[in-house]
Design a protein around this nucleic acid. Structure first.
Lengths: 321, 321
DNA sequence: TGCCCAATTTGACTTTTGTCGAGAGCCGTG
DNA sequence: CACGGCTCTCGACAAAAGTCAAATTGGGCA
């Protein structure tokens, strides 16, 4: 496959069609090819991000509820996906919205930290292609060896691919069996560099995990259901980038956390824009914990969750006064 | 006209169509309106920048000629509009390309300085709409009272409108009749603030004017053809933001320049990205002057001009060695 | 050189989209 | 309260875009 001429043609076709507003048949005659080919080239152009179609997500911030939430929780921006409507699947809706929001937050030259989870992978999956050449996507936490399709490195690479950006992976297990080994591995130059580079990110994308038997930590074998229950009784409230946090959003003092290879929460907090996306209503407490810990500046949730958060905030304020 | 519900509908339609990939009839049934209305909403959405379609201008930098020029003239980036092709009008082609390049260079939160001229207005005219709320467009030089449709304030406002950004105009004549008056006016707080704010811009857009009887300075009555010829014999090589520069790109020491209200060249040079667009082949010397004076980091020209610049650079290097 | 395979291109067909004039709803005005 | 004038909306038609199987091209390999 001669890649150069093909690429050139796609570019030219896209240019004439989208920038000049010619019709497909006019493009075809300019380039001396058939209209069908033009249609195909244009599809490729859209798929590869040579052309970029994006919709403003302003609508979802304009929502009064979103504004209230921003005030109540001191967040920089909140987007609320409608759920009342007859839309097929609310969790998909949230992911689609999150993908748009994410693309709107990315700027040229940005360094983006990406964590791991079903939500993040779902966002990557519905994200449209863009052409941001000098963007770097870095992985925030170690890998889980499980055969799941949403491994941390895959999330990172998929998002990097969609953005036409550089992906920076690091290959270490998320959890090790002993604290000593984790310490030693963290001291490895390759790993240390990656982890210390996290705080230089301009944007982070992650979800928050629940502390229950459904958690990926359990499903992937990092923790047994029993251990999870133990952690819960010790005050575990949620999971961020593979680490267990308590209700205040601080790292829980436990053996598990000491065995994890992941970006420190302080590094995450050093990132100016931290986009948290939550799909499941059941992750209410974990999300509260993340917000309490200052791990979230930008939030995408469903209407349901938004209302619960607002009610909670109102109740807390009332109690305090 | 109830503006809220209409806007909401446009947003929703655009969202369902572009983000979710639904067909127009599906969108129509979701929103309980006719497909024809959906089509109309979508057009409005495109026109107002609620959706954004942009094509990568990478193709035009990939050009070997562009790369050579970047090296030869030490520019950050060069885009070359093809002229050999059977494309209708090369100057329109350059303007369309420049508009795309400009949009690609703008980042969120940017402050953009815009000067004045036929070229700049033409770029504004073909520029597609975008939704960049926290961008500010500032006017770089005073106004000419002439009835031309490309007055500095109009250039600024038009570009601001296209970007859905804030436009910052200042109302002073470009040229005054005495040097004292110009000095006094420059000292006015409103004007001083505007001019000193120029160096804080992140991006500038301007063209360069020729020193001849066709110049707008002559057409608008700021200078007589005779005065222009005089300036030329004194070493005037071009016009940038209403100011006359010599072949080295320095402000020419003349009464005219002292009577002008415009951003100082030093302020312009303080702007990180200075996009210069030249349409006419006749502006070769003015462009050389602008480049010599470091007033240009990003350049959009036609293939013809590009070749001339490269030949000139090669000749100069040869002579020097 | 000639053959084969894969990728690309094409023409014909279907589906989707854009557009236009007619009609309906709405508001301020006389 | 009836009357233009206005915009918004709809249905129907025309134009454009998407799709698919068949044909062609080109390049590697025996």
């Amino acid at each position: 496959m001669a890649i150069r001429p093909a690429e050139q043609l796609i570019h030219k076709a896209a240019w004439l069609y989208y920038a000049h507003g010619l019709r497909q048949d006019q493009v075809a005659s300019q380039l001396n090819i058939s209209r069908a080919s033009v249609a195909m080239y244009l599809r490729k152009a859209r798929e590869t991000g040579i052309v970029n179609i994006s919709t403003s997500t302003q609508l979802f911030t304009d929502d009064v509820l979103a504004r209230k939430l921003e005030d109540a929780l001191s967040l920089d921006a909140v987007w609320i996906a409608p759920e009342n409507d007859h839309i097929a699947d609310p969790s998909t809706e949230i992911a689609v919205l999150a993908a748009s929001v994410f693309l709107e937050l990315v700027k040229k030259g940005d360094r983006i930290g990406v964590a791991w989870g079903r939500t993040v992978y779902m966002i990557a999956d519905v994200m449209s292609y863009a052409d941001l050449q000098d963007v770097t996507v870095v992985q925030l936490c170690g890998n889980l060896g499980a055969p799941y399709s949403y491994r941390p490195d895959q999330c990172t690479m998929e998002i990097a691919r969609r953005l036409n950006a550089k992906g920076l992976n690091f290959y270490a297990p998320l959890v090790l069996s002993t604290e000593e080994l984790a310490r030693a591995l963290r001291a490895e130059p390759v790993i240390r560099e990656q982890l210390s580079g996290v705080s230089e990110c301009d944007l982070a994308l992650y979800s928050v995990g629940a502390v229950d038997a459904d958690s990926h930590l359990v499903k992937c074998g990092a923790l047994t259901p029993g251990e999870m229950a133990d952690l819960r009784s010790q005050g575990a409230a949620g999971v961020i980038a593979g680490q267990i946090i308590d209700a205040e959003g601080k790292v829980l003092d436990c053996s598990y956390n000491r065995r994890v290879i992941s970006a420190e929460l302080a590094s995450l907090r050093a990132i100016a824009r931290r986009l948290v996306v939550v799909q499941e209503d059941s992750k209410f407490e974990p999300l509260l914990a993340a917000i309490a810990g200052g791990l979230c500046t930008h939030l995408v949730v469903g209407a349901h969750m938004a209302q619960r958060l607002l009610d909670h905030a109102a109740a807390t304020t009332e109690k305090a006064s």
